[in-house]
Design a binder for these strands. Sequence first.
DNA 1: AAATAAGTTTAGACTTATCTTAATTTGCAA
DNA 2: TTGCAAATTAAGATAAGTCTAAACTTATTT
Lengths: 219, 219
Amino acid sequence: MLTNTEENYIKAIYHLSVDNKTVRTNAISEVMNTTAASVSDMLKKLSDKSYIHYEKYQGVSLTKKGKTEALQVVRKHRLWEVFLVEKLRFNWDEVHEIAEQLEHIQSKLLIERLDDFLGNPTSDPHGDPIPNAKGEMPVLRQVLLSELDVNGKAKVIGMKEHSPAFLQYLDKLGISIGSAVKVMDRVLFDASVELKVNDKKTMVVSHEVAKNILVSPID
Amino acid sequence: MLTNTEENYIKAIYHLSVDNKTVRTNAISEVMNTTAASVSDMLKKLSDKSYIHYEKYQGVSLTKKGKTEALQVVRKHRLWEVFLVEKLRFNWDEVHEIAEQLEHIQSKLLIERLDDFLGNPTSDPHGDPIPNAKGEMPVLRQVLLSELDVNGKAKVIGMKEHSPAFLQYLDKLGISIGSAVKVMDRVLFDASVELKVNDKKTMVVSHEVAKNILVSPID
DNA sequence: AAATAAGTTTAGACTTATCTTAATTTGCAA
DNA sequence: TTGCAAATTAAGATAAGTCTAAACTTATTT
């Protein structure tokens, strides 16, 4: 059985393992808000329990066991977030801290019942995918922002166009990977899109721009 | 901010303070599954933080602050139990352990939203009353078992008749204070009552008996 | 190849929270 | 007033996590 802190370390390693590269001690110490020395201690512990592959000075990666564990924690976190937003009417930006606590509740049955109760959602209120009970990530539906329905919410997952001009423009608008977008309206005349970004700023982007932003719909 | 263990001690003291008598160290050590020495340590700590009135060798009682704290924990525990049974379809005898974990989640807002979501219940699935946000216990509705509707659930809270013969009879039936009862049917002819006790045993008791059992309906 | 910087690990100690055993003290009832 | 059960204290153990400082490794520069 893992302690909460161990679970948090494993989760951090998971989130830092974006492109399967090995994760450095310093990177972990930064997100865990602690010193590299503390991280080294913990890495040895997690390695002894075979949650991670650990070669000194070479960084770490999760073992199969570790990845499964991480995905369970992520699953719990995201399911609770759905619960808080959908059932308890929290805003999606208020739920993280509470979910940080709830994700450590230990009960397989509880989380499966919760999953059913919520209608087996595949993504959380931020648009992040929810692993299934086996720890498999659902394949995200991908559409272009230009194809999203009016009132549809989605999460930005990438861009088709990579020119600096385009990226700088998006930057100015405050749109980046991970942004939550909602289509408020679509202008019939030129198919330009009225958008709300991160539940805050409203703006209009051209059809040409919308065609180059890849999003994943949030149910 | 209290640790989980401190919360558990305070809750234990609360539950042991049935008739406002002072609670003994040994009684606490028993329910907390620890030694009297550990309890003494903790009592000093809780006294320093003024959650309890503590005079050495004289036992303890909760201060106003301590009682408020205890009632908040009890409130959380019971609300989560309602959630687990009503929303996640757990049986009422499966929920205690999970609620033991959930009761320590820290968020005022969460618990108020949960309360609303559940329709502000006044008792948990075991029939125990749920304190309100201010820490006040609702006054329980009290009716006689003989008055309970068919299909009505209730919790036994006392007896009107105290003769040994009566009490021994109830004992044999497995009915005691705290038992959960459900009226399965009522015989028109003599008003005798078909009962299910603690979701298990089914039995028939006479109207005369039912008239002497005081119960509190569970919505 | 040495020097250096950056990153990482080790050693050892510390904190916090809780528990244990053993000895001692207290309250109270016979 | 004595004897015993209950409670407390003392002293230390343990577990989890952390820190500082020194030592070490790796990669980069000269």
